[in-house]
């Protein structure tokens, strides 16, 4: 329960921490599109340069960003097996009777692994350098223009911040209920499949009940204090873009343009 690397804010004092959350979100969006451009393996070079720069300035260790990949190793192996079995394009590498392995099986798997890895590093840089509340504020500001077509920007941002706020609470709650049920003989590690399903049920039902309870109470508390989602409000923290933001966005756009060009040649 304690190894959630993805999404944890690290309070370091770097220039990336001080950047405007709006520009960081926009850059992440641009880079996400870039990662998925079909520019071939050479297309990852500019992205890697960008990521190296981001990691350097955010003082994050590469191993920290990669920690989230550990549990995905099995998924990668599974992908490789599936690709080896079904991929029928590229050059033939091995041929034992019906069992044929083509080169695309490996290159396609490599693409997926590289793309996921890059995405995870990019997301980790964003969440590790941006406080959750700044992040939602950034999202709210970015969605503001869409309010004209009926998108409830503030409500979405409020929902995200409430969800983020309750993650640690729910983890605590889960641990508590797990201990309580363990005291009643629940054993999550040993036992048959049916026993395990029952064990998980004894955990999920109370967790949902208390989550709904909390939601009700929170709604009451917000209403009691006169919360109105449509009210116009001022901010204690005013977002302001600086030269660093403009430079970083320009950098991201250059990387995007390079890869776009690489797609055509």
């Amino acid at each position: 329960m304690n190894n959630i690397a993805l999404g944890r804010y690290l309070p370091l004092n770097t220039i990336i921490n001080k950047m405007d959350p709006r520009s960081k979100i926009l850059i992440l969006l641009v880079m996400m599109i870039t990662v998925f451009l079909p520019a071939g393996f050479i297309g990852y070079v500019p992205i890697l340069i960008f990521i190296a720069t981001a990691l350097y300035f955010s003082k994050l260790k590469l191993t920290y960003a990669l920690r989230a990949l550990k549990p995905m190793i099995w998924m990668f192996i599974f992908l490789l097996v599936i690709n080896v079995l079904v991929m029928r394009t590229g050059t033939l590498l091995i041929s034992w009777g019906w069992f044929k392995v083509y080169s695309d099986a490996f290159s396609q798997t490599a693409y997926i692994i590289i793309r996921l890895t890059l995405m995870i590093i990019l997301c980790t840089v964003l969440t590790a350098t941006t406080k959750p509340l700044d992040l939602t504020l950034g999202i709210e500001k970015l969605l503001k223009p869409f309010e004209k077509i009926g998108l409830p920007a503030h409500v979405i941002a409020m929902m995200i911040s409430i969800a983020l706020r309750f993650i640690p609470t729910l983890i605590d709650e889960t641990n508590r209920i797990m201990n309580a049920q363990a005291s009643r003989g629940v054993d999550l590690e040993n036992g048959t499949m049916t026993e395990k399903i029952r064990a998980v049920l004894s955990l999920i039902v109370p967790l949902f009940v208390s989550a709904f309870d909390r939601a009700d109470q929170l709604a009451d508390a917000m209403e009691a204090r006169g919360y109105d989602p449509s009210a116009t409000r001022t901010r204690y923290k005013v977002l302001k873009m600086t030269n660093v933001d403009y430079f970083a966005m320009a950098f991201a756009l250059v990387v995007f343009a390079t890869d776009l060009v690489l797609c055509w040649i």
Binding site: R176, I177, A180, G185, L201, P206
Partner: peptide, 27 residues
Amino acid sequence: GLVFQFPEYQLFEETIEKDIAFGPKNF
């Protein structure tokens, strides 16, 4: 037997009978 703080949060069965029986059944 360990009774945690606010143990009412550990209830999960459909009926009270089943919930009370849950512990001994596990044992």
